[in-house]
């Protein structure tokens, strides 16, 4: 028995290295991406599958290589592109994809303007993505049922063919809003059946958005004063109720504007010399000056300062 174990140990050394890589990548994912529980769970599952698959192959247990085409659905700013980038890296590190680069494409890159233009265009993009991941943003635009002579259908057919035949060579990730993706799949059942992993990206909660904001600021060497933190929370709550809220993207834009105001406040204040602390700290004024807070921001300003 003991002999058996030690033999297994040497055999699995390589795979254990792989396992360590997987754990490291997943830990990083956990640290750098806030929230997204279901997404992380699925990525963890996929990583385990790849590690086990490798282990099985070393023992001569042959199985068809897993199909990893994915569909990311979710509202704007929920991290679909970011996760796709990470996915490409993970698949590369785990030895599933050979190059691990991400090629982003939209309808314009795939569909041509006239007869005979679409196939070469789509193939061009597919060839560029080989060995890596092809990320098709807003994939439902490929399919326009109202125009039966639309060239999008041709692009979909080529895509399907390559997804099936070159499964080892590239991973296709489709992304878009959930409801429109559903409609897209209804019109293209072949596409739905070839995509194994449907991952839904939930909207962020206020707490998660706060955490994201702090992470974004920390990466750029800024920080929020305690009062600004309160103001930002209020801002997020209000912004979420407004139309066109794009989750983390809205937060990033808000912080960009806060940086702008921060800079002009410092210059206008006439305070010299400016300390490192001054240069780093975002105060509530910067956030409360936003259009979102306009209706009663005077009262809030007094309260915060």
């Amino acid at each position: 028995m003991a002999d058996n174990v030690s033999m297994l140990d040497t055999e699995t050394k390589h795979t254990e290295g792989l396992d360590a890589i997987a754990q490291e990548m997943l830990a990083r994912l956990d640290k750098e991406l806030v929230g997204l529980k279901p997404v992380k769970t699925r990525i963890r599952e996929i990583a385990s599958l790849l590690v086990i698959d490798r282990l099985r192959r070393e023992h001569g247990l042959v199985a068809e290589s897993p199909s990893l085409h994915m569909c990311f659905t979710g509202n704007p700013g929920t991290g679909k592109t970011t996760v796709a980038l990470r996915m490409a890296e993970i698949l590369h590190r785990l030895g599933y994809s050979r190059k691990g680069h991400l090629v982003t494409a939209t309808r314009d890159d795939l569909v041509g303007q006239y007869v005979g233009h679409t196939a070469p265009k789509t193939k061009e993009v597919l060839k560029r993505a080989m060995g890596g991941v092809l990320f098709i943003d807003e994939a439902y635009y490929l399919y326009r049922p109202e125009n039966e002579r639309d060239y999008g259908q041709e692009a979909i057919e080529i895509l399907l063919q390559v997804m099936e035949n070159n499964r080892d060579d590239l991973v296709v990730i489709l992304a878009g809003y959930k409801d429109r993706m559903e409609r897209f799949f209804q019109g293209n059942p072949g596409m739905k059946s070839r995509i194994t992993h449907h991952i839904d990206f939930p909207d962020y909660t206020v707490d998660e958005l706060m955490e994201i904001a702090k992470l974004m600021l920390a990466n750029q060497h800024y920080r929020l004063s305690p009062a600004a933190e309160q103001a930002l929370r209020l801002y997020i709550e209000r912004r979420m109720a407004q139309p066109n809220f794009a989750n983390a993207r809205s937060i990033r834009n808000a912080l960009e504007r806060a940086r702008l105001r921060h800079a002009s406040r410092l210059l206008a204040s006439g305070k010299r010399p400016l300390t490192k602390d001054d240069l780093m700290t975002i105060e509530p004024e910067e956030i409360l000056a936003s259009r979102v807070m306009r209706d009663d921001n005077d009262g809030m300003l007094q309260q915060a300062s």
């Binding site: 190059k99 680069h101 597919l126 060839k127 890596g132 070159n166 060579d169």
Partner: peptide, 17 residues
């Protein structure tokens, strides 16, 4: 046959063509 493949990084694409 087609154009020279300038942006390709993986041999699979060439093999497909």
């Amino acid at each position: 046959w087609g154009l020279p493949m300038f942006d390709v990084t993986d041999a699979a694409a060439v093999m497909m063509e």
